[in-house]
Design a protein around this nucleic acid. Structure first.
Lengths: 352, 352
DNA sequence: CTGTTAGCGCGTTCAA
DNA sequence: TTGAACGCGCTAACAG
């Protein structure tokens, strides 16, 4: 036994009276070892309480860990509070379980030691959940020179990217949200990692560092302008997180303003659910008094009858994992579609 | 560079014109190296594209990985479909993020190679999600001789255990479920890992290999007998998984029987939600025609007004992680309580 | 089928 | 403050 109380393969071999390689083969290529030798090795291992080759030593020797690193952005524990993030993880898990890879979720907290933590994890590749352009974790992943895929964005040189066309999807669902509306508004994800929550107007928004948020805002802007409203007249409630409760508060604030919106495009079904609650609390009917759209087509969208963007985070997670375990290819273009339900007004026939 | 295209610390040291240890100190104890030497090392590292010490080599040398292994039982991807399991993972994530540990979820599939997969993961300790007495993964974890904690059960020699007193909690919530009932029934988790779904009676159930299921059945049995019903007269619908849709089908079957139940105790709020749907579909009022109880006090319990057992899987996950990262102590006795809502009949004043 | 050699990349130890 | 040697535990490659 070593000082740590753990037996080594060499000790097992010695006790069994065989060479170390015979012992190693017993675990790695049992068919190449005589039954007799194998039995001796296993008996010795049993006697010493040897549980098999040490995984770290094996990884060092083999040059691969059989583990996929997952970087969930900001604070790790939030990932499990966001149902869409959980779907994404499920997709990764599907692939990992299938290929026998461990799924190593890296402990991001938003603090200064995120980078050493990412660099210190023994993994063969990385999947990075949507983050901001200036997230230092991206450079850390890039520096590791292993296969890596970013979900959502930003695009990073050398890393793969799996995402839907957020701008086009936002324009499409925004068209449904803002059809026949005179005062369109937006409930948005945060603009940058400092996650300040604020109410502003379209033309006062600059420096959006989360690419997903930026692209969706661009799509909504186009939809608003197509519907005849200036971007400067579109009120945007920016939330700190993707969360129904906060969206409800922000929506309540918007609806209490002197010139309240009659259509709100949110960035997730969670947020849209909060908007719906705020609308009901102020006695508004949906969609007549307020049209609402979400994003993701989750269970809550179906139950509330929300018009939304359907996409499969689970499939996207799986695609990320597959790419990160092989050659990452830039594969812009996950599937999406707009699901029209009763939370929006009918589109007017012609656009003129 | 090595053949794998990756620079080593030795190469960095050579290029920088310093010894390997100076380069190593640059990364591990920067304060012990002169600014000058450190600058040379970092410049060389930059030039070679060296991303820092190799995690596997470092783990081997240090004897620790800074990663916590998580074994989620059966098929890994189901874990993300069960909201309570996700809460549990969130609790583990809280602790891991706090202590800078990676959270390595091991790829269990229910197949023969689960054991090598568990033994092959480079982790410092294990948290094992509730499983069956005969799950070979338990012996594998035990053989690793590292700190390990089982959630729920079974109790394994040498491993910690974090759980509520399922028997007592089931007896308590069962008392609420079966108060004033003449034909109590149960919707149960699976009995063993083969997960057969079946409808049976209490006295025909033997060999329950999932200890959590077994203990809850014992508690429900006590509650049924206290309410004056023989265990042999209690119908038990066994589901293959913890899932609202399956519970709904099973409940529908129970309710369609000649002598249908007037009270159903389920084993999760998910299941109870399915039972509620089945009850509504057959025009039953709750609790007058059918009393229903769940377990977990999740969001759905509140929204449906379910009487249920409150426990915090998140806290239990955190407790498991803390124990698995330190000395595991047998700590039976996570907190629980019964939350009474409108899905059950009032308890009769006296018992007699 | 079994053994020998030679490291994988790093960090502790001890000496300078 | 820096350096040299050694081994963490294992396995690929090559004999025999």
């Amino acid at each position: 036994m070593t000082k740590s109380g753990r037996a080594t393969l060499a000790q097992v071999a010695e006790l069994a009276g065989v060479s170390v390689m015979t012992a190693s083969y017993t675990y790695n290529r049992p068919e190449r070892v005589s039954d007799q030798a194998r039995a001796k090795v296993l008996a010795a291992a049993d006697q010493l309480g040897y549980a098999g080759p040490d995984p770290s030593a094996r990884s060092l020797r083999r040059g691969s860990t059989h583990a996929l690193g997952v970087v969930m952005g900001e604070h790790l524990s939030y990932a499990f509070d966001d149902p869409e993030a959980v779907s994404f993880l499920a997709g990764i898990a599907d692939v990992c379980a299938d290929r026998g890879y461990a799924m190593t979720i890296l402990p991001i907290t938003g603090g200064a030691d995120d980078v050493p933590r990412v660099k210190g994890a023994a993994v063969d590749g990385y999947v990075v959940w949507t983050t901001a352009d200036d997230d230092p974790v991206l450079a850390a992943v890039q520096a590791m020179r292993r296969p890596a895929v970013v979900h959502g964005g930003p695009a990073v040189r050398g890393l793969g990217l799996v995402t839907v066309d957020n701008r086009a999807a936002a324009a499409a669902v925004g068209a449904a949200a803002f059809a026949g509306a005179r005062r369109p508004a937006i409930v948005s994800f945060p603009l940058s990692r400092d996650r300040v929550s604020t109410v502003t107007r379209g033309d006062r928004i600059t420096d959006v560092l989360f690419p997903v948020t930026r692209e969706r805002l661009e799509g909504y802007r186009q939809a608003a302008e197509d519907a005849g409203t200036d971007w400067g007249d579109v009120v945007v409630g920016v939330c700190a997180r993707n969360d129904a409760a906060e969206a409800e508060r922000v929506a309540a604030a918007l609806l209490a303003a002197p010139d309240p919106p009659d259509a709100i495009a949110a960035m997730s079904d969670q947020q849209a659910a909060g908007v719906v609650r705020a609308a009901r609390d102020t006695g508004r009917r949906i969609p007549d008094d307020l049209a609402v759209t979400g994003w993701d087509d989750s269970a809550v969208a179906a139950s509330l009858g929300l018009t939304t963007v359907a996409q499969s985070l689970r499939e996207q997670g799986a695609a990320c994992a597959v790419a990160a375990l092989g050659r990452p290819r830039h594969s812009r273009g996950a599937a999406w579609s707009v699901v029209r339900r009763a939370s929006t007004r009918p589109l007017s026939g012609a656009s003129g």
